[in-house]
Structure formats: structure tokens, C-alpha cells
Nucleic acid binder design. Structure first.
Length: 757
DNA sequence: AGCCTTTCCCTTTTT
DNA sequence: GGGAAAGGCT
């Protein structure tokens, strides 16, 4: 409940100061449906937050009566912080403010039994999803070469994104995949999840949606509860989310959706721009507010972004304008290859740094996650501090997922997926054979793997050695569970990892990564202490799957274009503007014009992240999957307005014809280097034909040359102490005590003794 | 069962 | 160029 002193605000509330007319309109039009069409950099987030604060501060509703939904945890976090600040609230954790998934979990826990789940259901990760699908394919004798588990899971997810339970998939569509057999897999997949008392990500929304549709009383309750609904990034809603929202909003109709059709970049995840176009039909009498004044970028940047996006058809059409100066020209630079591009960006960053630019105001926005590596390597050698946003996530690491499996098992012994994962690691003499016996026993008795194991150790089904080992495991798990209520959970986690031998498994491992893994495990145990209970921690992990890495430090950000949505930087580098890479060949092959337009919106998003400076680059050659591919500059380069850009070429790259027979970017099938389809030839790999043996021999020679050897303890001027993991000429891969594993140049490294250790 | 070697596939994008 | 899975050997 709110502090009363904060609810009374006379005259013009201070928090709306400085809002322009349209923004004010969007904030104050509190009753009835409102659609805010907000262009990039128009203060959309501020409007949404202020609107929420305004509803509460004017006493229109209590905090518990407002539902505010965002797409990303980042956006939710930002909104929470801002609202708390505006209204001077110590905590907004209990409010209905969060991502679609976080809100859905909260609702689903309360009504899980209506879809055949317990309220303590587990949320499974992609790993478990795939394992399940693989099992089901095998059981149904479907060839996993012809039906790769990933594609099958993709089909299932697409159905879920569209809000279709197995029963709601149309017969004709079901037939499309393996004559309906994939649809059958979907059915048994859902069945299996239910038996496991588990949900995947898509289920969180799908189940909640089904509950709304089938339990009028539940929906009516939520109607009564939520007087106001706010939605951010409405253009990114998929069908399931759209239906979910529409049902909820039909209560008070006080729904305010904020979005930008030009920034719809999640079509591949089932997002439908159509949802935003349909708003007026769904909510008759809706008020439409347009935010077109851009406060972020210079005139030239805005002109460039507008010019590119104008090549798309079927837009709602907004005309962004700014009072800001024209600013600097945008720069477009062509380079010989990816390495040269990284060198160029590195140099430019150093220039900016010399001119006093803060590095946290610089970002490198790439199309694919794999592109980050080149920049990382370059920044490492130049000692430019950087962070990869949304890259390798802490909770996705192997050792963390393994450890989490143990914790899940302790939290609920019937989590069979966790059982399967924990029992194999560390080795206990219980391999596929033993597990198979437990599996079939469990299937027959219709009980969880853990219960089956407990019963099996009383019989002669397993060989004596396996039986003994299994009995030990079962009693260990039972012991840990018994301790659950008498022990602080981070202590318990420590104990579990210790007693299970999992920690020891990595401590005894001599490989160079092992040390870092042990540290990660310690970090996990520490993180656990911040949560109320084990269950709460596990839920947080499955929903957020991200650690808030060191923020607030002065570092260049490297991230994907998708990851950059909602952010802004003074200077933005946009590398990799090459046909095939960006626009992405696969997107175009699979989605045609629709795919291309989404790529173009991505370009628009990228450009509009920049406040003052945008530097676009492309490379003529790029190494992909170990072989070389050549490409021509992206068509998006040609769509930039000439009067606002400066083209620079590197040794005539931009205008010079590429070497003969180097066509586009290869087909979407990523053929082997020596084949390749006609007209889409790829350059022959420099390394093709080289056997692994030859490569290894070459590696040995270079190891002796660099003066460092594998396993040596060394000191790096920036990252501190570490162990040499591998040596390739001048490049060392070092597993650092503090900074993880990194590739560095050997001249930045000295033997540990010399560093005065 | 477990270890080592070879082969395959991969790179769009994320809650 | 790298990680996972399959395959082969002890």
C-alpha cells in the first residue's frame, strides 16, 4: 500500500514537468483504451512510467490494481526503479509489474491445478526441453536426422506462441509435419511435462491463457483486480500474449499499449505487428497518441534511420523530427576482412577515448552473437575495457546447470529431468544401462525416476555394484531433503555439492577451465544467499537466466542489435553490414520479403540507438565456420541518404570488384567448403584439407616459439594471474583466476614469478 | 563403462 | 574454429 503522504499532489504534479504536449496527453488520458505510437527516442519509457506513477499518485488506483507488463527483465527493472523513485516507495516488489512471463508465473502458481499441475511446478530450460523431445522422437521411432529435435521443438514453440494447445492445432496444419506425427509428439510432450510437474517457457503463458478461457470466474477475479493495464513494446507481442492481454483488458478497458511498428524485430518469435494495427478494432473508441518528437539523436542520424526504414511497406507511418542540430555526418567504411574491421573499430574507440569520450557511451552492435569475438580479441589486445551484454550467461554454463540440477532434485525429488542429469555426474558407475532400467520401471509404475530408483534398490534388477551405488545416491538425496528445513539454503547447497562429489569432480579435473568452474560454483552458492528460499531462487534462475554483470563501469558495450533495443549511446558502431549477414540470408530465405523488412527494422533500431555518432562498416571477406566467405556491401548501405554520409574506403575495397567467383554469402544450408551450389560459391577454406594432425603439429611448433607453454602460470597486465590454456603463435589463451578465459597477445604477458608473485 | 578420437553441425535474433 | 555427439578402442 502506498504511503498516504505521497498520494496528495496539488496542482501540476512535479513528475510531469518537462513533458511535451503529446507526452502529457498519453500520461493523463487515464480512462479508456489508449494506443501510444511512439517512435524511437521519443521518451516512450518515461511516458509509460510517468503514466503509472500518475495513476497511483492521483488516487485512481492502488498499486495492486495496476498491471504493467514489459518484455525484458531489464525494462521491468528500470520501470520498477523509476516508479519507486518518483513515488518515493521503498519497495515495489509486490506490485503487478514485470515481464509477461513473471506475471504469468505468479498467476499460474495460484491456479496450477486447473491445468493439471501442482503449484510447485518446475520451469525447465532449453536443455531439458531438447532432451525430452529427443526421448519422444526415439519412442516414436522418428528419425532424428529427418526431424532434428531442434526443429521439432521449434514447431512446438511456434504452436505455443500462437496460443494453440495440442487440441487446438488445426488438422491440416498438424498433418504438415511428418503426417501429423510431430503433432503427436507435441501432445505427448505436454503430457510428459504434466507428469513431471513442469512447464516450459511457452507454457507459462499458454496455461494461463487456457485458464482464462475455461474458467470465467478466475478471469472475472482478475478483471475486478486490475483497474489499469499498461503494456510496453506492444509491437512485440505474439499471439498468445495478445490473446492473454485482450482477455485481461476486457475488464475495465483501461488499457494503454505503447509501441513502435518500426521496431518490431521479434517476428521469428511469433510477434505479430498486426496486433498493433488491430488495436482500434479490439478496443473501439481507442485514443491514439503519436509521439514523433525525437529527443535522442542528431538530425542526420534521424534522417538516415528514416531513409532506411522508408523502404519498408505497410508501415503505420510516423514522421520523426528533432530540434537538434544536424550533427556529424554518418560514416560508412569498407574493409578487407573482419579482422581489419575490428582493428578499425578499435582504433576509432581509442580516438574517441583520447577525445574524452566516456566508454560507457560507446557501443558495438552486431547482427549475430558470434560476431562479438572478433571485437573482444581486438579490445583485449588494445586493453580497451569492454563488456559483452547478454553473451555467455552465467546460468547457462555447464557446471551451473549441473549444480542447479542437484538443487532442483533436493527441492523436489520428483523432478526427473534433474534426477537424470545429476546421477550421471560425477561418475557413479551408473551409466545408460542402469538408467534405462530405472526409466522403464518408472514408466511402468507411472512414478518419478527418483521413486523408481528407491524401489529398484530393494530388488535384484540392478547388478550388485550398480545397486549399491544407486542406494547410496538415493539415501544421499533423501538426507539432503531432510535437511532442507533446518539449514540455511546456501549452506545446504554447499553441502550438497560437497557430498555429492560434484565439486570434487571439478577440483580434481586438471583441465585449465576447471578452476574457473569451481569458482563459478562458489559464486552460485553465494548468490543463493540473497533469496528467501531454494524454491524462490530456482524460480528466479529460470525466469531471469542472466546475471547483472558489472554495470556502472566505464566500458564499451558489445551486443547484438536485438539486445540493444531500448538503449542509447553517444557513439554506435554498426559493423557487418554485408549482404547475407545483414540482411541475414536465412531470414530472407525463410521469410522472404517479410524477413527482409524485419532485418530493415533491425537496421533502424541500430541507427536510432545513436545520439551523436554512427559508424557503419562492412568487410569484403569474413571467416565463418572456419572457412572464408566473401560478400558485397549490404543493400541497407545504399539506402542511407547520400547527403548525410561520408564514405571511406580501405585500399579501394568499396569500389573494387571482388575476386572472381566470390559470389554472395553462401546458401542457407552452410555447405561444406569444397562443394557449394552454383552461383552461390564460397571461397575455398584456407584450412580445408589440413588434417587435425597437421594442425596440431603446427601448434606444437608455435608453442615452443612463443616462449610460453601450456599450463604455465603467468601474469597479464590487465587481467592478473592465470594459467596458459593454449598457445598459437603470438596468441595465448589464458584461464585467468579472476577474469575467466581470454585470448591475449603474448607480449602483454609475463611469467608469474617475474610479476613478483 | 570410460576414455580418446573423429565427425558433424553450426551462427540469426530471446523471454 | 569450436562444442557436442558418435564411434572406436581398451
Amino acid at each position: 500500500m502506498m504511503d498516504e503522504s505521497q498520494t496528495q499532489i496539488d496542482g501540476q504534479p512535479p513528475y510531469v514537468e518537462g513533458l511535451n504536449e503529446s507526452q502529457l496527453e498519453a500520461v493523463e488520458a487515464t480512462d479508456g483504451p489508449v494506443l501510444v505510437l511512439a517512435g524511437a527516442g521519443t521518451g516512450k519509457t518515461r511516458v509509460l512510467t510517468t503514466r503509472l506513477a500518475h495513476i497511483l499518485a492521483t488516487g485512481k488506483a492502488f498499486p495492486g490494481q495496476v498491471l504493467a507488463v514489459t518484455f525484458t527483465n531489464k525494462a521491468a527493472q528500470e520501470m520498477k526503479e523509476r516508479v519507486a523513485k518518483i513515488l518515493n516507495q521503498p519497495s515495489v516488489e509486490r506490485w503487478w509489474l514485470g515481464t509477461f512471463h513473471a506475471i504469468a508465473v505468479r498467476m499460474l502458481r495460484a491456479h496450477a491445478e486447473k491445468v493439471g499441475l501442482g503449484s510447485d511446478f518446475a520451469i525447465i530450460d532449453t536443455d531439458d526441453q531438447l532432451r525430452l523431445v529427443k526421448q519422444l522422437l526415439k519412442e516414436n521411432n522418428l528419425d532424428d536426422k529427418k526431424w532434428p529435435p531442434k526443429s521439432v521443438l521449434g514447431a512446438i514453440q511456434r504452436w505455443k506462441d500462437r496460443g494453440q494447445t495440442p487440441d487446438h492445432v488445426s488438422a491440416s496444419e498438424a498433418k504438415e509435419f511428418a503426417g501429423g506425427r510431430i503433432h503427436g509428439i507435441y501432445k505427448s510432450y505436454q503430457q510428459r511435462l504434466r507428469e513431471l510437474n513442469a512447464c516450459d517457457f511457452g507454457d507459462l503463458l499458454l496455461h494461463t491463457l487456457v485458464i482464462f478461457q475455461t474458467h470465467a470466474d478466475v478471469l472475472a477475479d482478475y478483471h475486478r483486480r486490475f483497474h489499469y493495464i499498461l503494456v510496453d513494446e506492444y509491437q512485440d507481442t505474439n499471439v498468445a500474449q495478445y490473446l492473454w492481454l485482450r482477455l485481461l483488458a476486457q475488464g475495465h478497458q483501461n488499457v494503454c499499449c505503447v509501441g513502435d511498428d518500426d521496431q518490431s524485430i521479434y517476428g521469428w518469435r511469433g510477434a505479430e505487428v498486426g496486433n498493433i494495427l488491430r488495436f482500434e478494432k479490439d478496443f473501439p473508441g481507442a485514443k491514439i497518441v503519436r509521439l514523433e518528437r525525437n529527443y535522442r539523436s542528431t538530425g542526420r542520424i534521424l534522417a538516415a534511420a528514416s531513409s532506411v526504414i522508408s523502404h519498408n511497406e505497410g508501415r503505420l507511418g510516423k514522421t520523426l523530427w528533432t530540434d537538434d542540430d544536424d550533427g556529424e555526418m554518418l560514416r560508412v567504411r569498407g574493409l578487407w576482412d573482419g579482422e581489419a574491421e575490428a582493428r578499425f573499430v578499435g582504433e576509432e574507440v581509442e580516438n574517441l577515448q583520447r577525445n574524452g569520450q566516456k566508454l560507457d557511451q560507446v557501443a558495438v552492435l552486431v547482427r549475430t552473437g558470434a560476431m562479438t569475438r572478433e571485437f573482444e580479441e581486438r579490445f583485449l589486445t588494445l586493453a580497451i575495457p569492454y563488456r559483452v551484454v547478454g553473451g555467455a550467461r552465467f546460468y547457462e554454463r555447464l557446471e551451473i546447470r549441473d549444480a542447479l540440477a542437484y538443487l532442483r532434485l533436493v527441492n523436489s525429488a520428483d523432478d526427473s529431468l534433474a534426477f537424470e542429469r545429476s546421477i550421471g555426474k560425477p561418475k557413479r558407475g551408473l551409466g545408460p544401462a542402469a538408467l534405462g532400467i530405472v526409466h522403464s520401471y518408472a514408466r511402468q509404475a507411472e512414478i518419478s525416476l527418483f521413486k523408481a530408483a528407491r524401489e529398484i534398490v530393494e530388488t535384484d534388477e540392478l547388478r550388485p555394484a550398480a545397486r549399491k551405488s544407486m542406494a547410496t545416491f538415493v539415501s544421499q538425496v533423501e538426507r539432503w531433503q531432510g535437511l532442507k528445513n533446518d539449514m540455511p539454503h546456501s549452506e545446504l547447497a554447499d553441502l550438497v555439492l560437497e557430498e555429492s562429489g560434484y565439486l570434487e569432480f571439478w577440483q580434481n579435473d586438471k583441465s585449465v577451465e576447471a578452476k574457473g568452474r569451481v569458482e563459478n560454483l562458489r559464486e552460485l552458492i553465494n548468490a543463493l544467499g540473497e533469496y528467501e528460499s531454494l524454491a524462490e531462487f530456482l524460480e528466479h534462475v529460470s525466469l531471469v537466466m542472466d546475471t547483472n554483470s558489472q554495470t556502472g563501469q566505464d566500458m564499451v558495450s558489445i551486443m547484438t542489435l536485438h539486445g540493444a533495443k531500448g538503449l542509447e549511446f553517444e557513439t554506435v558502431f554498426l559493423p557487418g553490414w554485408e549482404e547475407g549477414l545483414f540482411p541475414n540470408q536465412r531470414a530472407m530465405d525463410e521469410q522472404g520479403l517479410k524477413g527482409l523488412e524485419e532485418e530493415r527494422r533491425l537496421a533502424y533500431v541500430g541507427l536510432t540507438r545513436a545520439r551523436k555518432r554512427a559508424i557503419i562498416s562492412f568487410a569484403a571477406n569474413r571467416r565463418m565456420h572456419g572457412s572464408w566467405a566473401s560478400a558485397i556491401p549490404s543493400r541497407f548501405v545504399d539506402e542511407l541518404p547520400h547527403e548525410h554520409i561520408e564514405r571511406e574506403s580501405d585500399r579501394g575495397i568499396y569500389s573494387a570488384p571482388l575476386e572472381p567467383s566470390y559470389g554472395g554469402f553462401g546458401s542457407s544450408k552452410w555447405q561444406d567448403n569444397d562443394r557449394g551450389s552454383p552461383g552461390m560459391q564460397r571461397a575455398r577454406s584456407y584450412s580445408s584439407g589440413e588434417s587435425q594432425l597437421v594442425r596440431k603439429a603446427a601448434q606444437k611448433i608455435s608453442e615452443s616459439k612463443s616462449g610460453f607453454s601450456r599450463g604455465e602460470r603467468v601474469f597479464h597486465q590487465k587481467f592478473g594471474y592465470g594459467l596458459v590454456a593454449s598457445v598459437e603463435g603470438e596468441r595465448l589463451t589464458i584461464s585467468f583466476d579472476k577474469a575467466g578465459s581470454k585470448k591475449v597477445l603474448s607480449n602483454f604477458v609475463v611469467p608469474a614469478e617475474q610479476a613478483g608473485m
